[in-house]
Amino acid sequence: ENVVSAPMPGKVLRVLVRVGDRVRVGQGLLVLEAMKMENEIPSPRDGVVKRILVKEGEIVDTGQPLIELG
């Protein structure tokens, strides 16, 4: 699984990683606000951040690609 998608609609509050960062399974990639709750979106696997597909403040839909892992 190379693309991390939004599990719910919401607003991207914070991106916690940068392109080139090594991440571990379960590590927070970004914080999504949904229904006034902050939800940290975890990495599904170990890898390297290849691309960040959203910006802070952006509104996303369920299933929208957020981050690509390499």
Rank of each mutant, 00 (worst) to 15 (best):
N2T: 01
V3W: 00
V3P: 09
V4R: 13
V4C: 14
S5M: 03
S5D: 12
S5P: 02
A6N: 07
A6L: 03
A6K: 12
A6I: 00
P7W: 05
M8Y: 12
P9T: 05
G10M: 00
K11A: 10
V12E: 15
V12W: 14
V12H: 08
L13I: 13
R14Q: 02
R14H: 08
R14Y: 08
V15A: 04
V15G: 05
V15R: 07
V19T: 10
G20M: 01
D21T: 12
D21P: 11
R22H: 09
R22P: 05
R22K: 02
V23M: 00
V23T: 11
V23Y: 03
V23H: 08
R24L: 02
R24K: 10
R24N: 04
V25W: 02
V25Q: 12
V25A: 11
G26T: 08
G26C: 14
G28I: 03
G28Y: 13
L29F: 06
L29T: 05
L29S: 06
L29Y: 13
L29C: 15
L29W: 03
L30R: 15
L32A: 02
L32S: 09
E33Y: 00
E33S: 08
E33C: 14
A34L: 09
M37I: 06
E38C: 14
E38I: 01
E40L: 11
I41E: 03
I41P: 08
P42Q: 00
P42N: 12
S43Y: 11
S43D: 12
S43E: 15
P44C: 14
D46F: 10
G47C: 14
G47N: 06
V48L: 09
V49N: 03
V49I: 00
K50H: 04
K50T: 12
R51I: 12
I52G: 09
I52Y: 00
L53R: 07
L53E: 07
L53C: 15
L53F: 11
V54S: 06
V54L: 00
V54Q: 09
K55D: 05
G57K: 10
E58P: 03
E58R: 07
E58S: 12
E58F: 09
E58K: 13
I59A: 06
I59P: 05
I59S: 00
V60G: 11
V60P: 13
D61Y: 05
D61E: 01
T62A: 13
G63W: 03
G63T: 09
G63H: 07
G63M: 09
Q64V: 00
P65L: 12
L66R: 15
I67M: 04
I67L: 00
E68K: 14
G70Y: 06
